[in-house]
Design a protein around this nucleic acid. Structure first.
Length: 126
DNA sequence: TTATTGACGCACC
DNA sequence: AGGTGCGCCAATA
């Protein structure tokens, strides 16, 4: 799989996440058949443009621990992600150290690989 | 070309 | 339950 295809697969899979639900980078990686590419899922998402069509609900993707990763000091991406999630009804807990957290056993969405349909055009791969 | 980084995951403390 | 350390794999410096 090329990086372009990888990115496309990531976007396609992220679009499958139901409203008001969250999943992890690692699970997205598993769904597209690359279980060890969890970090690259994040890479693909940051590569994403803010005005894609159709839009990709990147805010529904968080770390498997349920923590919203810090985009680095000076950036408020995590803050924006928290607001976007709360707007969908997802409860985000804030720890004393400021870490944003979501209860995965309540809001987590983890379909088994193969039990989902990516792209509904049934693209032939011959 | 080599070393470091990164929107991560899991085992361990 | 949460924090830390080590392992993964490409992209970047």
């Amino acid at each position: 799989m090329d990086s372009a295809e990888f990115h496309a697969a990531v976007y396609d899979t992220v679009r499958l996440i139901p409203h008001g639900r969250v999943t992890s980078y690692g699970h997205i990686a598993k769904l597209i058949g690359q279980p060890n590419y969890s970090r690259h899922v994040g890479q693909a998402l940051k590569f994403l443009s803010p005005n894609t069509n159709p839009p990709v609900p990147w805010h529904r993707v968080i770390a498997s621990s349920g923590t919203i990763s810090s985009r680095g000091p000076g950036t408020n991406g995590a803050q924006l992600q928290q607001e976007a999630l709360e707007a969908e009804g997802v409860e985000v807990t804030v720890g004393r150290t400021g870490e944003l957290r979501v209860d995965m056993k309540t809001w987590g969405w983890f379909p088994a690989p193969g039990s989902i349909v990516i792209g509904d055009s049934s693209e032939p791969d011959d």
